[in-house]
């Protein structure tokens, strides 16, 4: 090392001082670590292989119900959201008002109230539903849950779709039109790919919200992960039932969050310089 190098080398970093923020931060982290250790200690003392042998399959069946319910609702909701978004964006005032009302209703009221309205509310019309041959559908809590969730998520997804398509600048449409592409082709080849980049994160959030929101179906007697957890708790009186459910839900949500971020990084590679 030459003398010049030694002169230009940066001075050694000062030792970090114990500022107030640092003390509070370490104290709070200590609290979290203590809470985590407390939970692990609780789970270790409550450890019982019988619990898993007996209730493991219950958790699995609940998890399967949740996943199937959310998957079906998201897919059906995505299909239903297309005409709603189309109506919402159309120049026809009446169609726009109908779609706006639909979206406002399903976004403005609790999912729980919608589920109750479909399951218990339509149950009050049993004779009429039997007459038109739809009673088999509304008799089953499962079908009612799928219906309520599909309608609910379709309203949210319609707004995501509309926002994404409207986020694409007008110039893209005009440029395509000046090249002689017709409207449908422009939508498919030019607007849609750009809109999906914008829509990816909201879609990911919507799936996460649906997974978390699906816990309310337990209140209309569908045994999803949450419902099974309540059953396990009422049969074992063991509080670890709820903790394991929390761990499973959090694992799903975090996985989805990281997956969304990964896909977003992947499909925006061409925008990075």
């Amino acid at each position: 090392m030459s003398v010049a190098d030694a002169n230009t080398a940066p001075p050694p970093a000062l030792p970090r001082r114990w500022t107030r923020a640092r003390v509070i931060g370490h104290a709070l982290l200590g609290l979290w670590i203590a809470a985590g250790l407390g939970m692990i200690w609780f789970l270790v003392t409550a450890w019982d292989p019988q619990f898993f042998v007996k209730y493991g399959p219950w958790y699995l069946s609940g998890l399967l119900t949740t996943v199937v319910l959310v998957t079906i609702s998201i897919v059906l909701g995505a299909i239903l959201s297309v005409p709603i978004a189309y109506m919402r964006m159309s120049d026809n005032r009446l169609l726009g008002a109908i779609a706006y009302g639909y979206v406002y209703f399903f976004r403005g009221t609790p999912l729980l109230a919608q589920a109750f309205l479909v399951y218990y509310g339509f149950g009050a019309f049993r004779p009429q539903l039997e007459a038109v041959g739809l009673w088999w559908f509304f008799r089953e809590a499962w079908y009612c849950a799928v219906l309520a969730f599909t309608l609910n998520t379709s309203a949210y997804q319609a707004e995501i779709l509309r926002g994404a398509i409207e986020s694409v600048p007008r110039g893209q449409w005009e440029g395509a039109a000046s090249l002689g592409l017709h409207k449908w082709l422009t939508l498919r080849k030019i607007v849609f790919p750009q809109a999906m980049i914008v829509a990816l994160r909201p879609y990911g959030n919507e799936i996460i919200l649906m997974i978390k929101g699906s816990a309310v179906v337990t209140l209309i007697t569908v045994y999803d992960l949450m419902g099974m957890t309540r059953r396990i708790y009422s049969s074992s009186f063991d509080f670890q039932a709820y903790i394991w459910a929390g761990v499973i839900y959090m694992a799903i949500v975090e996985t989805l969050r990281y997956a969304t971020e990964w896909i977003e990084r992947r499909i925006t590679r061409h925008l990075k310089r």
Partner: peptide, 10 residues
Amino acid sequence: GLPELLTLFI
């Protein structure tokens, strides 16, 4: 990450 209903029960 936790469903609201589960937070409430916990």
